[in-house]
């Protein structure tokens, strides 16, 4: 028996979450006394994964899997699970991971726990802690089926190195009919995405208008951060929809989240609570965000942010 981890890549390069799911898979395998096997699809260098404990890598290289297709990828995962006699399959919580995991669960007749934030607290019964109620609580969930699929929440378990001597084996899988064809992919290049970012700089209606976002982008650039915004800001068309974060927007689970001119409404906080450290900059000391933040500056963003940029530049240069 083994634990199977799917390590996702884009254009041959592993996503950061890939290293986290492998670290997690290693841990679960230890708990179960099993081996960890990692599946990769069209990754350039799968041996990278040995650093995180991957004893064995099954590397699929197949042009017809060049772009992500949930159904096709799910059948590949299923074949790998069958080959390795894996009863636990671990997937990340990226947009593609969330698309894929339910299909894998059905094909393996597996109970599926999504949004898992920690290693199992027990393996018999198999119990995992999951986010629930939009980050307002956690549930301790037992998966009662023989086969199990775990969707690991981003930035929850962390990346842990544990170098092993591993093997990489080519794996030929049959590819199912896709049902859904990709016609075109538009991706902003050269910009950190919210999903990948360690730091997210986010701004709200307090900035008054789209013309004032220059300083937000500059702060993000200095920090290597992604930019985000509150819901009204994207509804007003000041910023693209893809930047809307919160309960009904994108979830944020970064190490650092900086909120500028955002009041901290419950729906906003629900989507960003999973971030480790929160900083708020707001003129109103009564803004609810101050209750949710770790660090706060009461002040006018138009004065504080430019100063902060200067100081950070000096700090980075030092």
């Amino acid at each position: 028996m083994s634990v199977l981890v799917f390590a996702d890549s884009t254009d041959g390069k592993f996503k950061k979450t890939a290293f986290e799911v492998v670290s997690y898979g290693k841990k679960v395998a230890e708990q179960l006394g099993e081996n960890v096997v990692v599946l990769t699809i069209n990754a350039a260098d799968s041996s990278e994964l040995h650093k995180y404990g991957a004893e064995k890598v099954l590397a699929v290289s197949n042009d017809s899997l060049a772009t992500f297709n949930a159904k096709q990828y799910a059948t590949v995962v299923q074949q790998a699970a069958a080959k390795e006699n894996a009863s636990v399959v671990i997937v990340d919580s990226s947009i593609d991971g969330l698309y894929l995991a339910p299909l894998v669960a059905v094909s393996l007749e597996a109970g599926y726990a999504s949004n898992v934030v920690a290693a199992p607290s027990s393996t018999s019964p198999f119990t995992v802690k999951r986010k629930a109620f939009s980050n307002k609580a956690f549930s301790n969930t037992v998966i009662s089926t023989d086969n199990k699929v775990i969707g690991l929440a981003k930035n929850s378990f962390g990346i842990h190195e544990s170098q092993v001597e591993g093997t990489v084996e080519a794996f030929e899988a049959e590819v199912a009919a896709s049902g859904v064809t990709s016609e075109n992919i538009e991706r902003v290049t050269g910009k950190v995405t919210i999903a990948d970012a360690d730091t997210v700089v986010s701004a709200g209606r307090g900035l008054k208008g789209p013309e004032n976002w220059g300083m937000v982008e500059e702060l993000a650039e200095v920090l290597g951060a992604a930019t985000a915004c509150s819901k009204p800001v994207s509804d007003l068309g000041w910023r693209p929809h893809g930047e809307h974060v919160g309960q009904t927007g994108k979830p944020v689970a970064s190490n650092l989240y900086i909120a500028i001119g955002i009041s901290g409404a419950i729906q906003h906080l629900a989507g960003i609570n999973a971030s480790k450290v929160k900083v708020v900059i707001n003129t109103d000391p009564e803004a609810p965000f101050f209750k949710a933040a770790d660090y706060g500056v009461v002040g006018d963003a138009f004065e504080v942010v430019p100063k902060l940029i200067e100081k950070l530049k000096a700090f980075k240069a030092a």
């Binding site: 597996a110 109970g111 599926y112 726990a113 119990t127 802690k129 629930a132 980050n135 307002k136 609580a137 956690f138 549930s139 301790n140 969930t141 037992v142 998966i143 009662s144 089926t145 609570n273 900083v279 708020v280 101050f290 209750k291 949710a292 933040a293 770790d294 660090y295 706060g296 500056v297 009461v298 002040g299 006018d300 004065e303 504080v304 100063k307 902060l308 100081k311 950070l312 700090f315």
Partner: peptide, 29 residues
């Protein structure tokens, strides 16, 4: 059902925010 919830937990209460003076951003850094 293939999963069932045993218990719920709330996130641990957070400590109070640390306020930094707007004129002392070096402290924030």
């Amino acid at each position: 059902a293939s999963t069932n919830i045993q218990t719920y937990e709330k996130p641990a209460p957070k400590g109070a925010v640390k306020l930094v003076d707007a004129d002392n951003l070096d402290e924030l850094i």
